[in-house]
Amino acid sequence: MTESASTTRPVVVAHDLHKTFKDFWRRPKVHALKGVDLEVQPGEIFGLLGPNGAGKSTLIKLLLGLLRPSSGDIRIFDQSPSDVRSKERIGYLPEETTLYRYLTARETLSFYARLFDLDAAARRERVDQLIEMIGLARAETRVVGEYSKGMGRRIGLAQALLNDPELLILDEPTSGLDPAGRRQIKDLIQALARRGRTVVLSSHLLADVEDICDRIAILFSGRVYALGRTRDLLEAEHRTRITFPEVTEEAMRTVLAAIQTASGVEPDVDRPTVPLEHFFLDVIESAQQSERDPTGATSGGELAPFLDRGSDHDPDP
């Protein structure tokens, strides 16, 4: 997929993108995005990371044309996001699933399917298959208002896939899902990527992101602080660490050969990486120091004193 990326046009391009939320009197309130530059290539799984209020959802809404940029440029499939034609090729899972509470799962999906150019038979087929896929076949006749959070989330995911989108935009896809559901989403995303689909997702679950994203961007307070291939970012540069005590090349070859003959498997030697969580926290920490007035949540301070009352080190009466 990386080979084709250089020859084809990017799916998403943001250039010096700014978004300022204004109040009723048009006075600037929050500068949510401050010059974001990024590109997403076809077939790529792109992760948007960042603490609460960093601007991830804002960026996604700009991508969907729900919000308009204050300045800068954003293109999707080389079109303006306000052009409805781009929507034919997009699937979107919002941060919180909000569904028509009085419709059943099947009616919900059928409704969204009707908004695409699909004939009745294709619609029915896709709805059937998606209901099966998200594991709600038994609950399909219940109204979604009765659904649990995770069940609703699954419907949300299914509606995003109805048009077999070329670009899937997932805002915190795994939130509210059980471990099996999370696993399933990760598998699904990877399966779609293998078919050449592009996925943009935001998430706070760094382990998941680390598992599946080809590239990531870390946002803080509306600015991109890290952008690149996941592996490259996490790679501890210019270091090769082998989890053996110091050995010579020859000794290592012998060791490897020995392992191979002993266990019958080929040992993998590559550069070690730091876990994404460490990397992420490092980036955010340094970003926090450079940002004088961050827009989103900061990492917070000490335990609130009243919550700490009566514990060992606080002899407050």
Binding site: L64, G65, R85, K87, E88, I90, Y112
Partner: peptide
């Protein structure tokens, strides 16, 4: 306000 509109507008709907 229920934000159902966001989802509909993410479909090819004017």
């Amino acid at each position: 306000e229920s934000r159902r509109l966001h989802l509909v507008l993410s479909k090819p709907v004017r």
